[in-house]
């Protein structure tokens, strides 16, 4: 019986394994191979010379990478602070209202990211929804906050909020109320309960939420293009350009590989530190 169970597990994992091999690992291998090809070739039958990686440093692509990682980090930290109270409320306080909130947040995902970002452009641009109205009413206008780094970070926070909020709420829901009460009973202040009881016990949710929003934000390009007006170039933007206008597949592949390795390292480090089974609701 146990042998049958094991066999069933293997068999039921087969379709997904096949999909992953074909759709995930195979392209990855192609990218990896292209990244070591000489520049601007369209075939893998060349002698590898790693020249695309040299271009990454010599032509300043590392700056895009640093901007992307920096903005992703900033937006993740802001998301953590912004989402904690909301997630706490959803997990412990709101009760039935949590469902309303969940539906509202999920609904926003039904509209394409680009359309939502253009909505913000219309709202925030000079002569747009906000500035236009204020200028008409008071006669005093102000500069648009668009086309800068802060508004890109705002866009990342806005777009990736659900990816932080839900894992965080899940993580906070795992903190038993009685451990909080016991800590208070033993003399802990609100702040001590937060730092010593709640955050450590909600760690799986914090790690999953932070990883999701960081990884997605690091690979994002719409925010910097649409809201940022390319005030800074995101690494994903560079990758797209290399494959399209640049017609330089090895360069695009090399940039992709660098991003994948960095993000993959973060992801593995994060995941290895928390008990993912716990957040999936599975008891060991």
């Amino acid at each position: 019986m146990q042998r049958l169970d094991r066999k069933l597990g293997f068999l039921s994992a087969l379709p997904m394994t096949a999909v992953l091999l074909l759709a995930f690992l195979a392209p990855m291998a192609v990218i990896a191979l292209f990244s070591i090809m000489p520049q601007k070739v369209f075939s893998l039958s060349n002698t590898p010379d790693f020249s695309a990686y040299r271009v990454f440093f010599s032509q300043g692509y590392y700056k895009s990478l640093l901007w992307s990682l920096g903005m992703a980090l900033a937006s993740t930290l802001i998301l953590l602070v912004v989402c904690w109270p909301l997630a706490y409320g959803m997990a412990k306080v709101f009760g039935r209202f949590t469902l309303v909130l969940t539906i509202a947040v999920v609904m926003s995902l039904f509209v394409s990211e680009n359309i939502r970002l253009f909505g913000w452009v219309l709202t925030l641009m000079k002569g747009g929804l906000i500035e236009g109205h204020i200028r008409t009413w008071t006669g005093v206008g102000f500069e648009s906050p668009l086309y800068g780094v802060p508004i890109i970070v705002f866009g990342l926070v806005y777009v990736y909020l659900p990816f932080m909020l839900f894992p965080l709420a899940q993580g906070i829901a795992m903190v038993p109320d009685d451990t909080r009460q016991a800590a208070a009973d033993l003399g802990a202040t609100r702040w001590q309960i937060l730092t010593q009881i709640e955050i450590p016990q909600a760690a799986p949710g914090i790690v999953v939420g932070s990883l999701l929003s960081f990884v997605l934000a690091a690979g994002a390009l719409a925010e910097s293009k649409i809201l940022g007006g390319q005030a800074v170039i995101a690494i994903a933007d560079d990758i797209e350009t290399a494959f399209t206008f640049g017609q330089d597949w090895p360069l695009g592949s090399a940039l992709s590989m660098i991003l994948i390795v960095i993000i993959g390292t973060f992801a593995l480090l994060g995941v290895s530190r928390v008990d993912l089974d716990a957040i999936m609701g599975r008891k060991r």
């Binding site: 038993p176 451990t179 009460q181 016991a182 009881i197 016990q201």
Partner: peptide, 8 residues
């Protein structure tokens, strides 16, 4: 506490 409320 009834549940002991130990910090896991």
């Amino acid at each position: 506490f009834q549940s002991l409320a130990l910090f896991p």
